[in-house]
Simulated assay, not measured.
Amino acid sequence: MRTVHLAVARHARETPGAIALIHRDRHYDYRTLHAAAGAYAARLAARGVGPGHIVPLLMSRSPELVAVQLGVLMCGAAYSSVDPHWPRQRLR
């Protein structure tokens, strides 16, 4: 089975300097994205996140959101992205 976080890890190994994402005027390479995702995964795992967990992510769209999403997947968990700009009623 192919997964997004494993594909990013493969690109980080094979083409670490290649651009993984662009946000506004900044470019982020696979090495940087994968390292950030790994750091988030370690922090999440230390808090007990693992397979079977669903992690709500209340974050705006950003490179950090992508890294956190990948970190959650690295833990074997799932995530639900929640936009902090949504109306309160929807956030509940």
Score class of each variant (00 low, 15 high):
Asp29Gly: 06
Val66Gly: 00
Ile22Pro: 00
Leu73His: 02
Pro51Ala: 08
Glu64Ala: 12
Ala18Trp: 04
Arg13Val: 10
Glu14Asn: 11
Pro56Gln: 05
Gly38Gln: 12
Leu73Gln: 05
Cys75Ala: 02
Ile19Pro: 04
Leu65Thr: 04
Gly76Ser: 03
Ser62Cys: 06
Ala77Ile: 07
Thr32Tyr: 10
Leu58Tyr: 13
Ser62Glu: 13
Arg26Ala: 15
Leu57Val: 07
Gly71Ser: 05
Ile54Tyr: 02
Arg13Glu: 15
His23Asp: 14
Met74Phe: 10
Val49Phe: 07
Arg24Pro: 04
Arg10Asp: 11
Ser62Asn: 06
Ile22Leu: 12
Pro51Leu: 02
Tyr79Pro: 13
Asp25Ser: 15
Val55Ser: 03
Pro56Tyr: 07
Val66Asn: 00
Gly50Tyr: 03
Ala12Tyr: 05
Val8Thr: 12
Pro56Met: 06
Ala39Asn: 09
Ala41Pro: 10
Ala42Asn: 06
Ala9Glu: 13
Asp29Glu: 10
Pro63Lys: 07
His34Pro: 00
Arg47Val: 01
Tyr79Ile: 12
Gly50Glu: 07
Ala41Leu: 00
Ala45Asp: 03
Val8Gly: 06
Ser60Leu: 13
Ala37Tyr: 04
Arg26Gly: 04
Ala77Gln: 01
Ile19Phe: 00
Tyr28Cys: 04
Gly50Pro: 08
Gly38Cys: 07
Gly71Ile: 03
Ala67Trp: 03
Arg61Gln: 15
Pro16Met: 11
His53Ser: 08
Ser62Trp: 08
Ala45Pro: 05
Ala39His: 12
Pro56Thr: 09
Ser60Glu: 14
